[in-house]
Design a protein around this nucleic acid. Sequence first.
DNA 1: AAGATGATTGCCT
DNA 2: GGCAATCATCTTA
Length: 195
Amino acid sequence: MDLTRRALQVAPELLGCVLRVRGIGVRIVEVEAYEGADDPASHAWQGPTARNASMFEAGGRIYVYTLHGHACLNVVCGPEGVASAVLVRAGEVVEGIEEARERRPGVRDAWLARGPGNLCRALGVTRADDGTVLGSGGIELVPGAAPAGVRAGVRVNVSRAFARPWRFWDAGSASVSAAKLHPAARAAAPRQPSG
DNA sequence: AAGATGATTGCCT
DNA sequence: GGCAATCATCTTA
């Protein structure tokens, strides 16, 4: 897969692929695209900072940031110098499920990697993994068949640019996260159809 | 050095 | 559906 294309194009193709981190693999079932200067909802909207530097690298690395104490993982896209990334929001554990269960005690299997913060916790990904090149450091992306039913909708919990349907998910998966809207988005689209 | 913010989560009603 | 916990990062002084 060519990861130097823009995130919006890569995002739906990531569904069905397997993301493997140090022996634990998840089949990706939910993603969101984030671009750079043209995307007010993106971390890179206002230019490079110490945190988002990985978003400006060439496609093929990962960008890991922390929010509210949780780590979130993105697949960096686009050519070097252009900010573009796909947030991996949820997956189904297909490999190393015993270890994933230990990291997420009391959670049913389908929910082990449901939600971007939970997915990183199940995989053991932290901010220390930021900037890792896929295929190194025990982290790799394995191509897989696209799901039969791919749906698109607005991104979850973003406070700006909430009209863009840049979220993609496998309609047939029980591991897709809850799609909560930011209050500003709810005010603008009170009759937003659910997924 | 201190205050505001948020691509979240989980518990509450 | 509402909201509080929680903390790295960024802004302002």
